[in-house]
Design a protein around this nucleic acid. Structure first.
Length: 271
DNA sequence: GAAAATAGCTTAGTTACATCA
DNA sequence: ACTGATGTAACTAAGCTATTT
């Protein structure tokens, strides 16, 4: 809770709590996790699971959770605020540019949702699980998506400062921005894989066709050779090595008693 | 300087939800 | 109104690198 406030971070708009049976299995994994449990209270998967969720962080030994996204974000937020020439600068586009009338309405709705979520959390550490609410999935507004897309065009990965700046501008949590970029990279890669696959398919088809054509040509040549044996067996000229001097010589093809056509001294010895 | 521990990041795969036909 | 398909936000696990101890 305190982390979210100190961040000035967008309140959590919905609960991430899992269905009961899932919580059981995963929390069991957390409690009984293998030797990788660190001294600060959890392994990395747990860290990612709890990240950006002030309530759950609060439940853990908050002060000792150095690796938690929230505290990380807090650090980077401070850094970002204190370094105007940081990488954040490329993200200083005014998000309001992206707000169409409808987008603005969406944005306001989103803010309202976030506000409700905050109100939900506000009371004495209330919890969605306790309220029996299922996890709600946030849909980003068109404008938020467009803004993220623009940012993605500039950098397809984010450093912490950029992440924080984007989150602030879009009124999202840093974790949401992070996840959006992860998913966006995955989508890009998938799309590229599909393109590559299509290209390879075409290459394959072309090569198959070429192979078919060459096979046919070979067959025709063989047929031709079979029907005209002498013509095929008597090339116009051949190169032969002279057995005595080991020089390559040209032989005429018209006679089986091939005469060496060499320089005068060699010709003498050959005849 | 080497080794272990830790933090912080990424990707791949999966789950859960919202939306649409 | 219901349903299956699809898109995507969010999550998990595993691996890698850099930094710290």
């Amino acid at each position: 809770m305190e982390l979210a406030l100190s961040l000035g971070d967008t309140p959590k708009p919905f609960s991430f709590h899992e269905k009961p049976q899932k919580i059981h299995s995963k929390d069991l994994g957390f409690c009984m996790s293998t030797g990788k449990v660190s001294s600060d209270g959890g392994d990395k998967s747990d860290e990612s699971r709890f990240s950006d969720d002030p309530i759950r962080v609060e439940g853990a030994t908050e002060a000792s959770r150095k690796g938690d996204d929230g505290s990380r974000d807090h650090e980077t937020a401070t850094a970002a605020a204190s370094s105007p020439n940081s990488a954040v600068s490329s993200f200083q586009m005014d998000f309001s540019m992206f707000r169409s009338a409808r987008g603005k309405r969406d944005f306001e709705q989103l803010s309202a949702i976030n506000g409700e979520a905050e109100a939900d959390r506000g009371g004495a550490g209330s919890d969605d699980e306790e309220n029996g609410l299922a996890r709600k999935k946030l849909r980003l507004t068109k404008d938020q998506s467009a803004f993220l897309e623009e940012s993605f065009k500039e950098h397809n990965t984010l450093n912490p400062k950029q992440k924080l700046a984007l989150a602030k501008q879009l009124n999202l949590r840093a974790r949401q921005v992070e996840v959006w970029f992860q998913n966006r990279r995955a989508r890009t890669k998938l799309k590229q894989t599909e393109v590559d696959c299509e290209y390879l398919k075409r290459c394959c088809e072309t090569l198959t066709e070429e192979n078919r054509r060459l096979q046919k040509e070979l067959q025709e040549l063989r047929a031709l050779k079979a029907s005209q044996p002498f013509y095929m067996q008597l090339p116009a000229t051949t190169l032969t090595m002279c057995p005595s001097c080991e020089r390559v010589v040209t032989t005429t093809a018209t006679s089986s008693t091939a005469a060496f056509s060499l320089s005068p001294p060699h010709a003498k010895t050959a005849s």
